[in-house]
Nucleic acid binder design. Sequence first.
RNA 1: GGGUGUGUAGCUCAGUGGUAUGAGCACUACGUUGACAUCGUAGGGGUCGCUGGUUCGAUCCCAGCCACACCCACCA
Length: 878
Amino acid sequence: MLEKNYNPKDFEEKIYSDWEQSGDFIPDMSKNSEAYSVVIPPPNVTGVLHMGHALDDTLQDILIRYNRMLGKKVLWQPGTDHAGIATQMVVERNLAKEGISRHDLGRDKFIETVWKWREQSGGTICKQLRRLGASCDWSRERFTMDEGLSRAVRKIFVSLYKDGLIYKAKKLVNWDSKFMTAVSDLEVVQKETLGKMYYYKYPIEGSTNEFVHIATTRPETMFGDTAVAISKDNEKLKHLIGKNAVLPIINRPIPIIADDHADPEKGTGAVKITPAHDFNDFEVGKRHNLPLINILNEDATLNENTPFAGVDTQTARKMTIAKLEELGLMEKIEDHPMVIPYGDRSGVVIEPLMTDQWFVDAPVLAKEAIRVVEDGEMEFVPKSYEKTYFEWMRNIQPWCISRQLWWGHQMPIWYGPDGKIFCEENETEAQAEADKHYGQKVELTRETDVLDTWFSSGLWAFSTLGWPDNTEHLQTFYPTSVLVTGFDIIFFWVARMMMMSMYMMKKVPFRKAYIHGLVRDEKGQKMSKSKGNTVDPMETIEKYGADALRFFMAAMETQGRDVNMSEARIAGYRNFATKLWNAARFGEMNNCTLHPEFNPQDIKLSVNKWIMAKADIATKEVTDNLNSYRFSDAANAVYQFIWGTFCDWYIELIKPVLYGADEEAKAETRATFAWVLDRILVILHPFMPFITTELWNNTAKRDIKLIHFAWPQVKEVDIQVMSDIDWAIDLISVIRSLRAEMNLPAGARLNVFLKDVNLQSQQNLKEFKTIVCSLARLDNLDILQGEITSDMVQSVFRETSVLLPLKGVVDFAAERERLNKELESLNKNLEGYARKLDNPSFVERAPQAVVEEEKRRQAEALENKSKVESALARIANL
RNA sequence: GGGUGUGUAGCUCAGUGGUAUGAGCACUACGUUGACAUCGUAGGGGUCGCUGGUUCGAUCCCAGCCACACCCACCA
């Protein structure tokens, strides 16, 4: 017995544990069928589920469940990411509350603490994914810092190094002074800021009244200046080229050089060159062999190469200006809108800094990653993201992968006594290599840097399947079928996976990349903790059930668009679940059970044939749309079928049968109801796995679980049956509409007559008279014998006039108004038809079918017009 | 500066070279008819951003413009 009310809390968690405990998410490797696999974008191990995950993982689960029902061997590979900087930050913050810094603990102790932290809070997000209904194979859960995955990291690192695709270099990198580490270009966010432009001048060496005028936004970097550049085409200033300027305060002479980097139109036309602290200046320095003077410490304070050692940049800036003022060299300070780089995690200003770092030769790896997309071996959905991908890949810069952090994969690099690099998968091998090289036992020191988090994420598609071992899962499930992720990590992750996979596996990591948008708040604003507009998916699930949230995500997911949260809409989908629940209860109350010998071929009643055909059409729509990743269309098709067709019409249409006396018809209808409800549960299951399973389990004894039930294959649909029932439905709607517009009391029983009824309609009338009378609340419905009388209101329906005699009841003014409105609408349509059909080029050039259809419409409208006009004439004086 | 996307009903958005049978929510009127008030029935509401072009026909294709959003680059 189903509960009176739909209450998802009663069964969602129970059903999930049953699936998990029964191993329903684990692929049957012995099954001889097509493989389908998805790797989950690994959430941060310390993270909690947010709406972005809810969207991403709902879409994946829909695909996974759908393909599982298609009978494929399905794996959804779960796991979490160690998220280097993010996790280290969280743990350090916790330690800070106790007044401890990571340096107090030391590296080993600190890492131990992180692992402990992971034990405690690492499970949260996976529990939450279960609550959402995600059917991952949890027995295979992986973590990027697992031994297996770490081995994959070391192996690929060594391989890349030996192929010359990983190298160490002293370069200008983005330096995060909070975490005191290098970060990659992607981890830098540019923010619009209103800053200042400082104008001042450097004296020319050997002259007392000659100066070169400089404009800069960072005056404190002057201590690292090693030249001033002027364009050779700068007529006003080119006379200075070749002379020396003298850096004030420290009185160091620097050359004035000719370089086109100095745009005569911008600033003062002369540019101070600080090769160690500016990416452009670095290039200029390279061209002119300028010395590099580093003026910053790792914490972004100035160093002993400046007069302000130990002072932070902001303060040093003020001090520098003060000094310049004192020397009479400051000229002006202007407001200057500019873009300043910040660390995406730390939020501090990123300083370009010269350091030894490790790089992946991304431009080389990008080649194959570009080719396979060009060749269609990997396709983006929607396709337009290819452009973004190509644009970035074709302009890719070397990828800085070393981080001066503690939490992460320590690089498999050892240094010999003379600094020679030994890159091997483990210390023993490195030691052996070194001993061989030096001809004696030597002491090695290990590189302390760890790898960028995205390095290990880049291997995710194959490392989680067991690589470097050639496991059964790797053989079966690689390449994976589709990757589902947000556009915001195309560069961070998708691109890196493509490069790493093509390098190591020589095969794409996934055949398709389905890219979705962001989940925003109700007003389309980006959700963020600081704005306080975040919505917690767990609270939403608590309130409306996981099915409602999932259906919302699916229904809102249209390719390429962001999803705006809408609580009202989620409530609407909860109502949808309630509707289905009640429909199932209706079936239960009326003993609608599926007979084992039920054969769709034997169905006699039109209404039953009709609903089965409709079910097939809906099934086909859901199938086609899922196959092309059109989630909202798929969701809407099943929604419309269940609510708009099954509940609104079918259930109403069969009530007279179920409450009637024809036992044979009753039995057939009960069985059909059960058959269609089953079909509904099947095609809705990927979207709403919980309620469908609950109903599946409670409406019949089942041999097979819904999660494994075969997805239906649809055959041809009987069009005639469809249009017969549609005739009845349309007629009912016309009569209802007439009643409402005439303001007739809902309780009033009426007689309705039809005039101009063709043969097909006469048959329909015979068959559906009872149903139409019942649903349109009529006493009788007949073909009109004799003339239309003046008390009849008239509506036109296809070729037929619908006549409602209303002696004494009707408001004729309202009726005239209604008819005039209809006349107006008909005239408007007729104008449209005439415009086309009177146009010779339309008749000549438009497709024949379109012209015919237009003529048919015109004829019908003309006929209806004359009917409406005569109706109007009849009641003109009443 | 380079690029991408979006502008359709009050709101949030689908959709389409042939009268916009648009959806959900909101709104109005009526309603408790033996699944469901987390409901039902009926209804109001749109110059499909603007201007040109292609076409027999454009909301849809093309160009330009306006507005908004996002991505990439850029600390003189």
